[in-house]
Design a protein around this nucleic acid. Structure first.
Length: 115
DNA sequence: GCCATGGCTAGTA
DNA sequence: GCCATGGCTAGTA
């Protein structure tokens, strides 16, 4: 039992929105694209829960695997990140996304839409 | 009562 | 810039 049990934590955590669903959606965002907190909320049938989505992503159990850096604000501003906005910016740029003073440039063309 | 948001107003230039 | 939204956490009883 040395390993922290994320599954148990996730089962308890969110009465309305399943964090597993959130992470499943994150996994669909292709490299070189971004989505928004609001879009994820809508895709899960909870428009208006964008801020809650932010909170769920904020305790991302596995930052190495789950690409939470690909989620930005609906305004195109890059938004928060556990290792700081500069790190998020750096990672996005490495994936080919241009950023101009803390916002995605040509946001529309980089924005990924869920089916 | 916080917040990794978002959308809508006021009010400046 | 204000405030509604929704899930969470600290800290009181």
């Amino acid at each position: 039992m040395s390993q922290y049990n994320f599954a148990a934590k996730e089962e308890m955590a969110h009465p309305c929105i399943s964090s597993k669903n959130v992470y499943d959606l994150l996994a669909k965002i292709p490299l070189g694209k971004v989505s928004t907190y609001g879009d994820i909320a809508k895709a899960l049938g909870h428009p208006g829960a964008s801020r809650a989505i932010g909170r769920i992503i904020a305790n991302n159990p596995n930052p190495i695997v789950v690409p939470c850096h690909r989620v930005v604000k609906s305004s195109g501003e890059i938004g928060g990140f556990m290792y700081g906005e500069d790190k998020k910016k750096e990672m996005l740029e490495k994936e080919g996304i241009e950023i101009e003073n803390r916002a995605v440039k040509n946001f529309k063309e980089f924005r990924f839409v869920f089916e």
